[in-house]
Design a protein around this nucleic acid. Structure first.
Lengths: 189, 189
DNA sequence: GGCGTGATGTCAGCTTGTGACATCAACCTA
DNA sequence: TAGGTTGATGTCACAAGCTGACATCACGCC
């Protein structure tokens, strides 16, 4: 038998989500999270740089979907490449993930320091996307603007997707947000 | 003679900028900042909610320029209203502010937790701008997307403006960024 | 059987941030 | 002018986040 239970970071994340939902983010100490997972505070900080980071465990897979999407997109202008990547990323979030996403987002919305961290992650995502666009020959400024606008569209779509009573898939919400983005130039808007 | 030296928050901010430049953000404690300003740590936390906030003192005036710009802009589509506001905001940063902006931005770039705070402030700015757009009758989604894209353009322009050797005014950098943004959304491109 | 490895624990300490209460010059009022 | 009020600041104690140094000890390899 193994000396330690496997999957320490996953257990810590599960424990944290449970506690945050019950007592709130601020009302939960790292020591409590660790105890819930059968570990100590010190071990928590070996896996996560700080208390907030536990909510963002496993982001790399998520980010890779966007980068892959940009690399594999058909040729077009910067925005159309980003749009293709977003639509593929939409498929990454199936309907089974909706409830968990909602719960996680509710925790993040409850605390400004978590919103900051979320923004930093999204900013890093935009920077990665801009890099992938530059690798396809898009100029630096256009790449940055396309990536940032794309992330803004993703946020709009994601917010709709987890809203109460929303039935459409994330990909459908994405399409709508992209239509709106392109319509910003319309004199009618 | 007054019991206390006036302008405690300004003195604390100046002391902080000085120390951060000399010793780095992380290498400076709040107690040191307060001592430099002739005050105590407790007083620092009476003026600033946390250590980072001292770098963002006086943001309201900055934000108001954007909101005023949106309110006073001539009619047009969402993006053109945002563009008018950005160009006015460009005038807010005269050439005399360039050096201080550069120094401040260097501190922020040196520490991820400061970048987080900066992103939160910019996100709040975008949300205010979106509100001002909605007040002009723009629909919610378009307002959010136009505001976020506009803030992205501002960041691009601001980064150019404080780059080494840049001679153009911020307003000129803004114009360039806006041209790129419009080209991005233009289906013809 | 001995030994290194590596995940975890223990402990001490620093920094950030907060609540409760004390201080005391300036100001107001009778 | 005496006496009370105000408000910026100080003092103290403490919780919580986070870190470095070192200890522990099952597992697996030689």
């Amino acid at each position: 038998m193994a000396r330690w239970q496997p999957g320490a970071p996953e257990r810590l994340q599960a424990a944290a989500l449970k506690r945050f939902a019950e007592q709130g983010y601020d009302g939960t100490t790292v020591a409590e999270i660790a105890a819930t997972a059968g570990l100590t505070e010190r071990t928590f900080f070996r896996y996560f740089a700080d208390k907030r980071e536990v909510l963002f465990y496993g982001r790399e897979a998520f980010e890779r979907v966007f980068i892959d999407g940009i690399e594999k997109a058909e040729d077009g202008n910067a925005l159309s490449i980003v749009a293709q990547a977003l639509l593929r990323a939409g498929d990454f979030f199936g309907d089974d993930r909706r409830e968990r996403s909602r719960a996680r987002q509710a925790v993040i919305a409850s605390d400004p320091s978590l919103q900051e961290r979320e923004l930093l992650k999204l900013s890093a995502l935009a920077e990665s996307m801009a890099g992938a666009l530059r690798a396809r020959g898009i100029n630096a400024t256009a790449a940055t603007l396309a990536a940032e606008s794309g992330v803004a569209a993703f946020r709009v779509a994601f917010t709709s997707w987890i809203a109460d009573g929303e039935r459409r898939s994330l990909a459908e919400c994405q399409e709508e947000a992209l239509v709106e983005l392109r319509a910003l130039l319309d004199p009618a808007s």
